[in-house]
Design a binder for these strands. Structure first.
Lengths: 347, 347
DNA sequence: ATGAAAGCGCTAACAC
DNA sequence: GTGTTAGCGCTTTCAT
């Protein structure tokens, strides 16, 4: 009908031109040993010169197979915002690489975060063999329901109690802990925590933060916990309030690099210096962290590894294995926003 | 065979349970008017409660349709590097959004840049209706061949002479020109250009750069043109050579924000200040440009718009229209790496 | 070594 | 309104 699909070539055409049956063409093109070498050669030449390729839709139907994995990046239905956080974008890139390596196709979908179950459609309709969902957001229960329905599901996010699905994620508790310990080691005692603890990953990081405080004999102060969303413009307001507020602090742990940098700007707008007055630690270690002013001390997430782990977990599920959630190691990268102990001058 | 696909539900199952024929189920689920309201209701209920969804592979085969567009991000076969440039990643995000809005699926593929024609497989095999390729790289001819073969093709990149395919891209000449003019207006006269002119987009930007120089009565100086690739670690070396070299310069136009920031670092390593000694302009206006040290004056590319334009161009092609290449407007965002004329103190 | 025929899960005439 | 039937483009017995 469309100009471009007027008359797609099919096996029957090749068969006719080669003077053989479709079965033979099929066998030739699929490397069966049951074809005469010359016949195969003729068929292959023909196919190549005409740019014929086996119709994978038909092949998959007949073989009842499929090599497609859906990667779902939920969006906030109110904001309908563009995928913007660099971390999510790069993890998608990493998954794309891992899937390509293993010979799978990647379907990239965006779905309303409030209707995560609609992602299951991708599976039910046979479009994809399994689902990778980027982030748990506030939908742990919906994810559990999907898993209960036996939808092959791997979620990038934190490992929670009562979790039926397979998650792969960074060590959030460890990350929060390392960030906090580092600040404490530099002598900071009033440490703020920035991130929306409604999200499991953030909650775990806060748990690490609490643990760090505890180790140092400090009590958490709720006034220093800022529920800033990952969405930057909305976060800024909360950070301005924190910076301008009466509650004093000399350290800050943020749940993304962009959040950390917004905090830096908010602090500067009220004439507080980083790190002199407030030392700041970010999260993710995206490229921005090395170029920013100041360069960020931040918790490095192993993005490259993440894609491979996610895909391996998915392939395990597809093989029918029980795949345990995985937690990937993170480590602190120290830069100038929260430098290591000031070089003790002399001894 | 796999645990998870033991016995996928199909229309026949629903039909049996509902006590009707498959045709009726098909009609009911597809909203045909030729079904009794009650029958439809019963069928729909059943399907919903069993999480049955029409098998799209079979449906597509039967209907000879397909709603999938492949987005191809070429990779360098030598480096086999991860998609890392934030600009490419965000344009992929933008396309994903635009496709979702219009009801299309997006297949994200990576292919060896040296074998771009292999991307055509995605089309020939019917996996995708059309191809979006991110970047022309050095493969203008391969792209032309694909277009000559009537593969529906939209390329993010520059508009070139002798171009058979549809391209969508930022106004590269304009971008290069604006960047250069801005530096000239600040009184800079020795302006370096950083980017691999083997790539069409870069070549066009350099053309704008030359034009800017020409307007000011200046001659290009080949020693100030640095063929730095987008890949950062490789670029750094070239930038260090430039910074340490004997050829003096007081302004610099880079072809990405990351390149600009690497240039800043290279300059600092030889004790040259930005912008005091050298004013630097970046390209793309990624988030990093606002947070970096110094914040970058940079050419803003309309990423959000780009996705929509690319997809609209593709849909035009699929409708059989001739779609002309499109050039999207860019504009300079002035920040501190190349500030506007120093506030003339008094008059 | 090759061809004929059945069927993957679905839709759309065509009957009734 | 609903069922029957013939494919969509392919693979694979089963013959020969």
């Amino acid at each position: 009908m469309r100009e471009s699909e007027r008359k797609r070539l099919q096996m029957a055409d090749i068969a006719r031109l080669a003077g053989v049956s479709v079965s033979t063409v099929s066998r030739a093109l699929n490397g069966s040993t049951l074809v005469n070498a010359q016949t195969r050669e003729r068929v292959e030449q023909l196919a190549r010169s005409l740019n014929y390729a086996i119709n994978l839709g038909a092949q998959n139907l007949r073989l009842r197979k499929n090599q497609t994995i859906a990667v779902v990046v939920p969006y906030d239905s109110k904001a309908r915002q563009h995928i913007s956080d660099p971390f999510f974008l790069s993890i998608v890139g990493s998954i794309a690489d891992a899937l390509t390596d293993r010979g799978y196709d990647m379907l990239l979908s965006r779905v309303d975060a409030e209707r995560l179950d609609s992602a299951a459609q991708l599976f039910d309709s046979g479009k994809a063999l399994g689902l990778v969902i980027i982030g748990q957001w506030r939908h742990h229960d919906q994810l559990n329901e999907l898993a209960a329905r036996k939808v092959p599901l791997v979620v990038w996010g934190g490992q929670l109690a009562q979790q039926l699905y397979c998650s792969v994620g960074g060590d959030n508790i460890g990350g929060g802990l390392q960030a906090t310990r580092h600040l404490l080691q530099q002598g900071r005692r009033r440490i703020a925590f920035v991130g929306d603890a409604g999200l499991p990953e953030v909650r775990l990081r806060r748990q690490g933060y609490w643990q760090g405080l505890h180790e140092a004999g400090l009590e958490p102060d709720a006034r220093l916990e800022v529920a800033a969303p990952f969405e930057i413009s909305a976060a800024r307001e909360a950070l301005d309030r924190l910076a301008a507020g009466r509650t004093r602090f000399d350290g800050l742990v943020a749940c993304s690099d962009l959040l950390a940098l917004q905090a830096v700007q908010a602090l500067r707008s009220v004439k507080r210096r980083v790190p002199a007055d407030v030392a700041v630690v970010g999260y993710d270690d995206m490229p921005v962290a090395t170029y920013s002013d100041p360069p960020l001390t931040t918790v490095h997430q192993p993005v490259g590894l993440a894609g491979a782990e996610i895909v391996d977990a998915m392939l395990g599920l597809l093989r029918g294995e029980r795949v345990a959630p995985r937690t990937l190691p993170v480590h602190l990268v120290v830069r100038e926003s929260a430098p290591a102990a000031t070089e003790t001058p002399g001894r």
